[in-house]
């Protein structure tokens, strides 16, 4: 088998003496969706923020395509094609959709100035594909609805040809129709060979969308299972009891 797209090996982080992530190893192959499950505070978001460069790890190694890499800030992560859609919807509230989409990677005219018109055009194109009802291109992000903000965040992640996508509860703020849209999008991205880490509370979402699921409890990895081989109840057991189901082990 090829080297995994991403391999997180023996990752540990502690905050003020508390081990938020304790010796966790997970990996992700191209075209694969790996779900990360667990209670609040189980360490899923912390683990993922290490990959996206928002937190610094205390121990462990990160490999991309089999090579060890250093990721110490969000800029490093982006350089390796890692894009993140955060749970807290990390948008700058006071600027419009195009400015948010291109934040940190603005298009420039040949004079070196911002090419707002080109950025808006591209934003219209991407958003048209993602959320055809979206028309509020001139308004600051804070006046958008939760779903609209989420689609801006997703558009930002896929705009730059990400190879690895991290989605932290992407459907949390969405209605049923928008949730279906995200599901379609994930299938589409999978087909393009993008690897996706999907963090979610909802077991059904994970069972529907993911190939494998890794369950965490109290900072430790309970285990990783093939979704096809287990039932909802098996996974629920892993989350609550912190035990690997026998048949998958």
């Amino acid at each position: 088998m090829d080297a995994p797209l991403v391999e997180l090996r023996n990752i540990s982080v502690s905050f003020g003496g508390v081990k938020a992530v304790d010796d966790v190893s997970v990996n992700l192959y191209p075209g694969e969706v790996v779900g990360l499950l667990g209670h609040n505070g189980a360490g899923k978001s912390t683990l993922i923020k290490i990959l996206s460069g928002a937190y610094k790890r205390d121990g462990g190694k990160i490999f991309i395509n089999g090579e060890e890499v250093q990721i110490s800030n969000p800029r490093d992560a982006k350089a390796y094609g890692i894009e993140t859609i955060y749970q807290a919807l990390a948008l700058a509230d006071n600027v419009d959709a195009a400015a948010n989409l291109y934040l940190g990677r603005e298009l420039k005219t040949r004079w070196g100035t911002l090419d707002d018109v080109a950025m808006e055009a591209e934003t219209r194109r991407v958003m048209g594909r993602l959320n055809p009802n979206f028309t509020r291109f001139k308004e600051p992000a804070k006046s958008l609805s939760g779903g609209q903000r989420q689609s801006v965040a997703i558009a930002r992640a896929i705009l730059f040809n990400a190879r690895i996508l991290i989605m932290d509860e992407p459907t949390a703020a969405l209605g049923p129709q928008e949730t279906r849209m995200v599901a379609d999008l994930i299938h589409e991205l999978k087909r393009q060979g993008i690897g996706i880490f999907l963090i979610d509370h909802d077991i059904h979402t994970v069972m529907d969308l993911c190939d494998r699921a890794s369950v965490m409890k109290n900072g430790k990895l309970v285990g990783t299972v093939n979704v096809k081989d287990v039932t909802d109840d098996d996974i629920l057991g892993m989350i609550i009891l912190g035990k690997q189901p026998e048949k998958a082990a």
């Binding site: 800029r75 982006k78 700058a92 006071n94 600027v95 940190g104 990677r105 911002l114």
Partner: peptide, 19 residues
């Protein structure tokens, strides 16, 4: 643009890769 983005949401700006 970065100044305004930082003012709007400093964390978002940092996560977007702005120094």
């Amino acid at each position: 643009r970065y100044i305004y983005a930082i003012g709007g949401n400093p964390e978002a700006a940092e996560l977007a890769g702005i120094n």
